[in-house]
Simulated assay, not measured.
Amino acid sequence: MYIIAIAWLYVAILASLSSTSAVGGVLTFLFFGLGPLALYLWLFGTPARRRAAARRQAEEASHNDRADSDVNQ
């Protein structure tokens, strides 16, 4: 996934460098490079975020906290 992101940034940087003005280059990089890249990483990173959340929830559920238990319970 990250190789695609690196390649996309490379293409976006080259496209922004070939722009005729500095403002056009910056806007090209933002709207052609960083915007779509952020969307891509967010969409394709969702399964990893879900796995991490499930792992955290399983860890919390597996803790057996019996600190307040008495002998007669």
Rank of each mutant, 00 (worst) to 15 (best):
V11L: 08
Q57W: 01
Q57T: 07
M1C: 08
G33M: 00
G45W: 01
S16W: 00
H63N: 09
Q57S: 11
R51V: 14
S62R: 11
T28N: 10
G45A: 07
A22P: 13
F31V: 06
F44S: 04
G24K: 04
A48Y: 14
F32D: 15
G24N: 07
N64W: 09
D70I: 12
L30T: 08
S16R: 00
S16L: 03
S18F: 14
N72S: 14
S21L: 01
R49W: 02
G35E: 14
L39N: 04
Y40M: 12
P36S: 08
V11M: 10
Y2N: 09
V23N: 07
M1K: 04
I3G: 09
T28G: 07
R66I: 09
L9H: 05
R56W: 01
R56A: 12
A7E: 05
Y10M: 07
S16Y: 02
A5S: 14
A22M: 15
I3C: 11
S19W: 06
A15F: 12
N72V: 04
D68W: 08
T28A: 12
R49M: 11
V26F: 07
G45D: 04
L17P: 00
L17G: 02
L14T: 12
I4R: 13
R50D: 15
G25R: 03
P36T: 04
Q57P: 01
A52I: 01
L43I: 11
F29C: 08
L37C: 10
L30R: 04
F44P: 01
L27H: 01
L9P: 00
N64F: 13
Y10T: 15
N72W: 10
A22C: 03
I6T: 06
A38I: 08
A5P: 00
A15R: 13
V23W: 13
A67M: 09
T28V: 13
L34N: 05
P47R: 02
A52L: 06
S16H: 00
L34A: 07
P36Q: 10
A7L: 09
E60T: 05
V71P: 03
A61K: 14
R55F: 15
H63I: 14
W42T: 15
D70H: 15
I6H: 05
V23K: 15
R56N: 04
L14G: 14
Q73R: 10
V26K: 15
P47H: 00
S18P: 09
S62H: 03
Y40G: 13
R51T: 09
A15T: 08
D68P: 00
F32Q: 10
Y2Q: 09
W8G: 00
N72E: 12
S62K: 05
A58L: 04
A12V: 06
F31G: 06
R51L: 08
Y10E: 06
Q73M: 12
I3H: 08
A22S: 13
A5L: 05
